[in-house]
Amino acid sequence: MNFKRLIDTALNTSTDLYEVISNWYMLESGTSSKELYAFSERMITSMLKAYKERQKASIPSLTGWTGDIAQNLRNYTPRFLNEQLLYALEVAISMAEHNASMGKIVACPTAGACGVVPGIILSLKRFNGVSVEKLSKALVVAGAVGECIKGKASISGAVAGCQAEIGTATAMASSILVYIASNNNYRALYSAPALALKSLMGLVCDPVGGYVEIPCVKRNAFGVSIAYTAAEMALAGIESLIPFDEVAEAMGKVGRALPESLRETGEGGIAATPTAKKLLNEFIDRSES
């Protein structure tokens, strides 16, 4: 599937991009587009619920490496960022910590990258008053972005590195922001996910011990800030000269070129640092005693 095709169809038929994607989905799956909307809405409400759950109890992760850093942001007055971005970062980290401590989350596109899209969604709801209905439609648009990346590259860290997980989540999140800001700005809708994905090109998957914690949790917050940056740049009229579909393909090629040690094996990058090894050994000793 080509994202450009969906964008062109929306442009040429003066149809909302969400409607075009719904119709495409209907043809492909043989199920009603109402079901797709209902599904998307359920995912949005589940994200809202997961964040509320997390506020009630900050359980540490199984390794004890993460579990309470979101509150640092929650109790902090930003010096440079605005309140909306700070809140989005906090949501992203909360969700990623919730995931690491076996909380109930929406994999979007994966469990390790589950904080980026909710960070954007919740910040839009709280600071821009965007309705759940509008957000559900925007999430469908993000779904098409993710689906294109999945088709041309991968959304799995084990296959193509973190660029495929946080990278895809960030591209999806940037398209939500653009769609909410201006649902008929097709140039920006096509550019934002390309800008986002380009900025994370080559990001390796190097979790300490193979666990979805270090550096995964914090990368979710960086995904949020890049999504905002890509969306604002695209809305300002900055175009990605390399089209999104080509960027997605390039990401897949980079992923396949990555050595295995940098694809979720916990053997390279951050995972191979002396401190990472020490943390892992300490955890193994603890869990065996």
Binding site: M43, P109, A111, C114, L139, A142
Partner: peptide, 20 residues
């Protein structure tokens, strides 16, 4: 399918090591 990249709702931390 779009549904492959949004959801499922799962208990973390990993779709392959936990949900599967």
């Amino acid at each position: 399918m779009i549904l492959d990249v949004i959801g499922p709702i799962i208990i973390g931390p990993s779709s392959s090591h936990t949900a599967g």
